[in-house]
Nucleic acid binder design. Structure first.
Lengths: 147, 147
DNA sequence: TATTGTTATACTCTATAACTATA
DNA sequence: TATAGTTATAGAGTATAACAATA
């Protein structure tokens, strides 16, 4: 049986902290936008496209853990802002291919700067040991978020 | 290129991972509720009350990073569900004091069990080293969320 | 006058259900 | 029949603005 041992260590306590922190941080991160008209999920989609190159709306919906109609809307908004292009799929005429534009790349860069500035502000109260823990955990959190 | 002073090169990368992971996880955590009628922020308020004993609506709004009218609504919903009590403030008649009920404590316990079960499921793919990183980072994330 | 909390209202994001078009 | 995407609609959660009561 590969049941993870949650009674082992303080995994339960860690889970509690994690959940609480994730919910609070997500609420605050919503306010840290480069462009006020760009929602967190829209940003996240751009990030995914930057990593993956291009994807269909369905793939994006699955990756972002959002329902297909929500992704339809998000992609439409991004297209209206000139941040993605929609092209017909080569083999399947039901599908579409979403690609990010050059403008999206510039906006991601600006976004990184703004988020870093925001966190740098918070980080004034974090010591080097605490940063070390964050750096170590970041890939695990990402893995968790994508599982 | 004047980046904000993050002191270490990969802090920026950690911030990116963190933001992305936090947004995705928060979306998924919304679906992991003990009681479908209890929102993430309501749960968070109960958690805060469990730690702090009692607080005024204004204090809760500040702690949860929510605007006062939102907290008014949340507290009203919690009271309607018998999870908190509202009492007049001893010294200031403008304020109120919010306290959790015994029923709230029982529900928090059940919630812990359910969340642990959900994460235990994900954790099948996390090894002990990864759990270690999460445990180490959990308090830092909480600190960050409250700064 | 300033502050605490509330009421009224509107907005954003997401979901579900039903539809269209391809496969 | 099944799948990809869309349209129409509803709901949850939060915000802003204006107001009431108290300090």
């Amino acid at each position: 049986m590969n049941m993870p041992d949650l009674s082992h260590g303080d995994n339960a306590a860690a889970v509690n902290s994690l959940r609480s922190a994730v919910m609070r941080l997500s609420r605050r991160l919503k306010h840290q936008r480069v462009d006020e008209s760009l929602s967190p999920t829209e940003m996240s989609v751009l990030g995914t496209l930057a990593r993956c190159g291009s994807a269909t709306p369905g793939e994006l919906a699955r990756k972002e853990h959002v329902q297909p109609p929500s992704m339809t809307r998000i992609v439409a908004l991004l297209e209206a802002k000139g941040l993605v292009r929609l092209e017909p799929h080569a083999e399947d005429r039901r599908q579409k291919v979403v690609t990010q534009t050059e403008r999206a790349e510039a906006m991601l860069e600006e976004s990184r700067r703004k988020r870093n500035a925001w966190l740098a502000n918070l980080a004034a109260d974090l010591d080097e040991d605490e940063w070390e823990r964050l750096r170590a955990a970041a890939p695990v959190l990402e893995k968790l978020a994508h599982l």
